[in-house]
């Protein structure tokens, strides 16, 4: 100090990130895609809300699930939607799924040195009518896969999916093969089981479950008829169709 006395050096820090828990999951079928997420949002041991959606409809055939830092996630979805609207104005059509995937990569990498603290999973229908899942890391590294879990309970869910979707560590009966894609009812059962299991053992997972189902154009909706809590989101019955299934999860 000017008078010759000493003071301790002080340090202040602002942490711009936090972690808001929850888990997301997506599975691709031959001609459909399922994208799911729980609706609990927490910070530390406190629940901020029991209903904060993490899964968003982007186009008629694309759904984005965002997990990690909720503020970044909401901002990122907002900006992706804005870019997709601009694309519609310029080209008079929706952006194809693989193009949305590449767009998300460039948008994430643009923030390489101050990243959006989020894991993204993009699901939907490709231009060729196949179901697809793309998963991203926070800085845009991405890959097309058949299934992916991310978020707080990733370590609980992913090995279960390896076993049930990829049939890892299972030997097919002689002369037979494991199916490359599962039927829709099987996929929905696996998704619901994954979230009930994760809810049982992980404190940051629970409250509600939202499962988005995107069906390729012309595909039968028969298998969804018996599902409870179903709501259709698509406006036209002739194109790709989108549904959401809302379920309760344990709140403790």
């Amino acid at each position: 100090m000017p008078d010759g006395s000493y003071e301790r050096p002080q340090q202040r820090q602002f942490n711009p990130y936090s972690e808001n828990g929850g888990t997301i999951l997506a599975i691709a079928g031959a001609d459909f895609s399922v994208i799911a997420g729980d609706t609990r949002q927490s910070e530390g041991y406190s629940i901020q809300t029991r209903y904060a959606p993490k899964v968003f409809r982007l186009t008629e055939r694309a759904v984005l699930a965002v997990n990690g830092f909720a503020a970044d996630g909401n901002m990122f979805v907002k900006k992706v939607k804005q870019r997709l609207e601009w694309y519609r104005h310029a080209h008079a059509k929706d952006m194809p799924l693989r193009a949305i995937a590449r767009l998300i990569q460039t948008m994430l990498y643009a923030q390489r040195f101050f990243p959006y603290y989020v894991y993204n999973i993009l699901g939907g229908i490709e231009e060729d009518g196949t179901g697809a899942v793309y998963s991203f890391d926070p800085v845009g590294s991405y890959e097309r896969e058949a299934c992916r879990a991310a978020g707080a309970a990733q370590s609980l869910v992913q090995p279960f999916l390896d076993n049930q979707i990829y049939f890892k560590n299972q030997t097919p009966a002689p002369g037979t093969n494991h199916p490359t894609h599962l039927p829709l009812p099987d996929v929905l059962s696996i998704v619901i089981d994954s979230f009930t299991s994760a809810t049982e053992r992980h404190i940051e997972v629970g409250d509600g479950l939202e499962i988005y189902v995107v069906l390729a154009k012309g595909r039968s909706t028969q298998e969804l008829a018996s599902i409870g809590g179903l709501q259709e989101l698509s406006t036209r019955a002739e194109g790709d169709r989108m549904f959401v299934i809302r379920r309760d999860l344990k709140k403790d």
Binding site: S155, L156, P159, F160, S197, R201
Partner: peptide
């Protein structure tokens, strides 16, 4: 953690 996840499911 992984064991908990898979065991809870199977």
């Amino acid at each position: 953690e992984k064991l908990f996840g898979v065991a809870e499911g199977l």
